[in-house]
Write a protein that binds this DNA or RNA. Structure first.
Lengths: 204, 204
DNA sequence: ACCTGAACACCGTTCAAGT
DNA sequence: ACCTGAACACCGTTCAAGT
């Protein structure tokens, strides 16, 4: 079996996350296990505990990588169009990412850290980076306004879209005949943006 | 140990679901197990397989009960106010139900039937009943219009709210300073309804 | 210092054997 | 006909023992 001389701590970390990613991609997050990861990299399961606190910790770090990859995909959609078109490009980019990485994307939300505590800062920083993409897109609607207000709108819209995508993904919107996620997302975005635009002068 | 003479098939079914509900309420869905259910009703785990196909099936039937209870709670919020007020009452009722039954509510969405197939009709009928409550509330905005259009709007709005509530529940919206679910939900509803109202004549 | 592998305390599910 | 309980094939996690 492998020994310290074979792989450095950092190499081992990489191998473990790589193996975990692969296992999730192929068989889905629910069937991921420490034992499978161990056997797929040729180490005993015990070794993984030298690098990760437990499976929860490992999955959280895998999810952080997924968020990094998502950011790389989404940042490419930036362009100089209207708010509506920019947002639609972002939305389509997100749906493409979900489609291409479904099991990794599911792991982002199916994983529930057992501690009821807050997520670690290094994780929230990734979420923050992604939310900033939405902020940038909606910013023209909020010229000179409180940035925390912008953030609240971005988060609300993003969470709303997440709801649509995750419910259609789990077949829980089958009660409506043809639940195309993109169509429903656009319905939400369009109405939300119209509402936002027509009410901002009253509230501003 | 208990025997056929002690409990009928129907009684046993009731005992199992009751025990499962209790275990989920107290310890959460992730720690529910066939063995725990068995021991809490004084039967061996094998007996449960006479009544339910497997754990997935059992949880789906537990979730159907939760949806029934939710319907009973929500139907009480019906009143003769404006669309906006009616919807807000429905929303508050939903949030109260989530608060009072958090672990059962989580089980509704954390449970992923392993078959990628559709959910059974008896389950979707419950979802349908709940969606009808939203349809009824929004109906005044869709006088004489295609009911499938109304349904699409209801489902979109409901899925959006679900996204906000589920992300705040799992601490995944902590990146915004004070993520009060009710406030964000109202933000979504208000803008969505304004957008819906101001665009319906163009599209209608 | 690092890694193993047995051990512990759990799982879901099946099924021969009992009543 | 119904129920048991052992059996099978898995888990996460720990830790004494080896190198």
């Amino acid at each position: 079996m492998a020994r310290r001389v074979d792989h450095s701590h950092e190499e081992l970390r990489e191998m473990i996350l790589e193996a975990a990613q692969n296992l999730v991609e192929v068989d889905g997050y629910p069937s991921l296990s420490m034992r499978k990861i161990g056997s797929s990299i040729g180490y005993s399961p015990g070794t993984i505990y030298n690098i990760f606190a437990n499976l929860d910790d490992l999955v959280l770090q895998l999810n952080a990588r997924t968020l990094d990859e998502m950011y790389v995909s989404l940042v490419k959609t930036k362009s100089n169009n209207s708010v509506e078109v920019n947002f639609d490009l972002l939305l389509c980019g997100y749906l493409e990412f979900v489609d291409a990485n479904r099991n990794l994307w599911r792991a982002l939300f199916d994983h529930r850290p057992s501690i009821e505590n807050d997520l670690p800062d290094w994780y929230n920083a990734r979420v923050e980076k992604l939310l900033n993409l939405i902020d940038d897109t909606l910013k023209p609607y909020f010229n000179g306004e409180d940035p925390t207000k912008l953030r609240k709108f971005s988060a609300t819209l993003w969470a709303g879209l997440h709801g649509i995508i995750s419910l259609t993904d789990s077949n829980k919107l089958d009660v409506i005949s043809d639940a195309d996620p993109l169509e429903l997302c656009r319905l939400l975005v369009r109405n939300f943006l119209v509402g936002l635009n027509s009410s901002k002068y009253e509230e501003g």
